[in-house]
């Protein structure tokens, strides 16, 4: 991915991320977060993680944010009245963020592994085609295309079969929990 696109999409992600915090209307915050997630999905795709990028758009920017917007409109929340902003919490929040960024900068400046570009670590299609066993993945690798979704699926179902069933149970528990939580008590 050209550097220009990287800077464009990171700026998109960060500016709209900042707008989520700054804007007072919850609907505007939610829509900014959608744009931020779209930028983030583009960054995922720039890292050859096509499946995760698409999931980010479908699940986060699609399902989760629609849920947020539904709840905001269901509760009929008006924009926060312009109350006095708590100066203590603003200073505290900004300070926390700055301390975190300074620490991160100190770590990254000493990280030699972080100076590699994507071109320094190219995907070795020939070597990968030798080690992979499934014919469909081998064919894709021989054609020099990365079968991203197939490889994620292979990892999920071959290495983490128990965990993926646990996720299914978690989603079931979540669904039942939501129904019970939002049920009105009948007296």
């Amino acid at each position: 991915m050209p550097a220009v696109l990287f800077y464009l999409f990171s700026a998109l992600t960060l500016v709209f991320g900042l707008l989520v915090v700054v804007l007072r209307n919850p609907v505007a915050s939610a829509l900014s977060l959608v744009m931020s997630f779209v930028g983030l999905a583009a960054l995922f795709i720039s890292l050859d993680a096509y499946f995760i990028g698409i999931i980010q758009i479908l699940v986060y920017a699609g399902a989760v944010m629609v849920l947020f917007l539904f709840i905001i409109m269901l509760l009929d929340i008006k924009a926060e009245a312009l109350k006095k902003v708590n100066a203590f919490s603003v200073v505290g929040g900004a300070l926390l963020a700055i301390v975190f960024i300074v620490q991160l900068g100190m770590i990254l400046s000493g990280l030699d592994a972080g100076k590699k570009t994507v071109n320094d670590v190219p995907v070795h299609f020939e070597a990968a085609a030798q080690t992979q066993k499934l014919p469909t993945i081998k064919e894709d690798l021989a054609k020099k295309s990365l079968p991203d979704t197939k490889l994620v699926g292979l990892t999920l179902f071959h290495r983490y079969p128990f965990q993926i069933q646990l996720m299914g149970a978690l989603l079931l528990v979540g669904t039942v929990g939501v129904v019970i939580l939002s049920k009105r008590e009948v007296n």
Binding site: L14, A97, I101, L104, L111, K115, N119
Partner: peptide, 25 residues
């Protein structure tokens, strides 16, 4: 050129924006 550090920095900035938001809002 875009290095691993660039991605980590963007990720850290996004995280700190979220952290500040949780504290401030």
């Amino acid at each position: 050129m875009v290095t691993l550090n660039h991605y980590l920095l963007v990720s850290g900035l996004l995280f700190s924006i979220g952290l500040a938001g949780v504290v401030v809002r």
